[in-house]
Design a protein around this nucleic acid. Structure first.
Length: 461
RNA sequence: GGCUCGGUGGCAGAGUGGUUAUGCAGCGGAUUGCAAAUCCGUCAACGCCGGUUCGAUUCCGACCCGAGCCUCCA
């Protein structure tokens, strides 16, 4: 079997992926803090690691993919306060919407979705160990991690404590022994959510949950830990510090981080008003179009997100589905996804642009294939598409149905078929002016006609 | 200021020490009543300056420009 190469943030190079236990491959990806809707930037790691999950599953018999739900955080508290509702209402609502939105991007459901609030026990255990090992201390109701207790702190993000101090631009709380120390546990006031602990009623700091949940659900060492680039520091650096100091041994074998996407060359930010939620985009584009767009750049490169990117993604998918519609009556041959050129491309650190190029190549061969070659090529296109989480819709449905939202459906299929029949009659009478008038009318309603020897097919633009 | 990563044809976006990425757009052709779709062909790129080399977009150095991180932002 060809080897899978992955870029490891820790070593800063591509490495051949060899799981610690080929019969139990483990991957943990940082999930959402559930206090608002996921935007398209949030969706990038979800789609990227979903694709990696698919590749891993095509190679290993047992893959355990965990993605957490962070349901306790100061931003959630704030969101609930300003909405005048309960925290649970906020987290339930946005957890459900997150699952729905990500499902629409055709992502497989993770094997485990641990919630932070269900794992307070493991967090308390983790802190006890850190305190016992002198890696943490208690100050003014807080439990803090002592960064200078770890010689190699900063190794993942490639920065030294001195570097960090040189650039410090944040006020340091007086109870910290070292300015780089971070909070493991903080006290809660009566109107804030909290749990009893040996250090008083409080709640976890940002990084604690992931270390505790990885330990509780996946074990001491995991194969892959993923997330957005911005998480390298401080989040993953601190997770690593917590886990390594509490449990010793190797924590994560391969660290993977995706780059940002930018909106038409600008950073997506609330102040620029260019934040686009997945939910909003799904009003105008099907989830598979968003997924294709997100995969059209390599995950470690910045992706320029724009309307034209989405339009291109839609055209590409339309052409694949058109190729499949042409051969709808031919049964595909069973093709092993791992034997396709698309799989080869993905094995090289998830080179999705190359994989998409290979998809185009297969589609092109299918378009001009002789009868005997069709089953094999169709099978290849479908199997390769599945590895990318694409092309699994019925081609006719894809090309003729409107958006899933149901809005702007326009003409019904029956009406369109009726017009096509009328046009065929006009053409038979050599009344091309009438035939073209029908075609133009349909075109302005967003319906494209395609004539062939076998008859006329249509699709929505 | 510190650390990190980039600058590829009109646009998006891979890759490589010497030979076409790919897609969209453009141009020419086949096909079509005309189109659309499809197919064939075609144009066009590697920030700037040096260095290494028989040869550099690819390696090295300087410079210019851009992006990200530097305590809760994917």
């Amino acid at each position: 079997m060809a080897e899978l190469a992955l870029y490891n943030t820790f070593s800063r190079k591509k490495e051949i992926f060899t799981p610690a236990d080929p019969n139990r491959v483990t991957m943990y990806v940082c999930g959402p803090t559930v206090y608002n809707l996921a935007h398209i930037g949030n969706a990038r790691p979800v789609v990227v690691f979903d694709t990696l999950n698919r590749v891993l599953r095509s190679r290993y018999p047992n893959v355990i993919y965990a993605r957490n739900i962070t349901d306790i955080d100061d931003k959630i508290i704030e969101a609930a306060r300003s909405a005048g509702t309960d925290i649970k209402d906020v987290t339930d609502e946005f957890t459900a919407k997150y699952r729905e939105d990500m499902g629409n991007l055709n992502t497989l459901i993770p094997d485990i979705e641990p919630h932070a609030t269900d794992n307070i026990g493991p967090m308390l255990d983790l802190m006890e160990r850190l305190l016992a090992g002198d890696h943490a201390y208690v100050a003014e109701g807080h439990v803090l991690f002592a960064v200078d207790s770890m010689a190699e702190y900063g190794q993942l993000s490639g920065r030294s404590l001195d570097d960090m101090l040189a650039g410090a631009r944040v006020e340091v709380a007086s109870y910290k022994r070292h300015p780089g120390d971070f909070v493991l546990w903080k006290p809660s006031s009566d109107d804030e959510p909290g749990w009893e602990s040996p250090w008083g009623r409080g709640r976890p700091g940002w990084h604690l949950e992931c270390s505790a949940m990885i330990k509780a659900h996946l074990g001491d060492t995991i194969d892959i830990h993923g997330g957005g680039r911005d998480l390298i520091f401080p989040h993953h650096e601190n997770e690593r510090a917590q886990s390594c100091c509490a449990y010793g041994g190797e924590f994560v074998r391969y660290w993977m981080h995706n780059a940002y996407l930018d909106m038409d060359g600008e950073k997506m930010s609330k102040s620029l008003g260019n934040v686009r939620t997945v939910r909003e985009l799904l009003q105008s584009y099907r989830g598979e179009v968003l997924r294709f767009a997100l995969l059209s750049a390599h995950y470690r490169s910045e992706l320029t997100f724009s309307e034209s990117l989405l339009d291109n993604a839609k055209s590409a998918l339309d052409s694949f589905y058109s190729a499949l519609r042409q051969v709808a009556d031919t049964a595909p041959e069973a093709v092993e996804a791992s034997e396709t050129a698309v799989a080869q491309a993905l094995l090289d650190d998830l080179n999705t642009p190359q994989a998409i190029a290979e998809l185009h190549a297969v589609s092109k061969r299918l378009n001009k294939a002789e009868e005997a070659a069709i089953p094999r090529l169709k099978g290849e296109l479908l199997a390769a598409g599945k590895l990318l989480g694409l092309l699994q819709h019925d081609p006719v449905d894809w090309l003729t149905s409107g958006l899933s939202s149901g809005s702007g459906e326009g003409l019904s299929a029956d009406e369109i078929e009726g017009q096509i029949a009328a046009r065929a009659a006009a053409k038979a009478d050599k009344d091309f002016a009438a035939a073209d008038a029908i075609r133009d009318a349909l075109a302005s309603a967003g319906i494209v006609l395609e004539d062939s020897a076998a008859g006329t097919t249509w699709r929505r633009q």
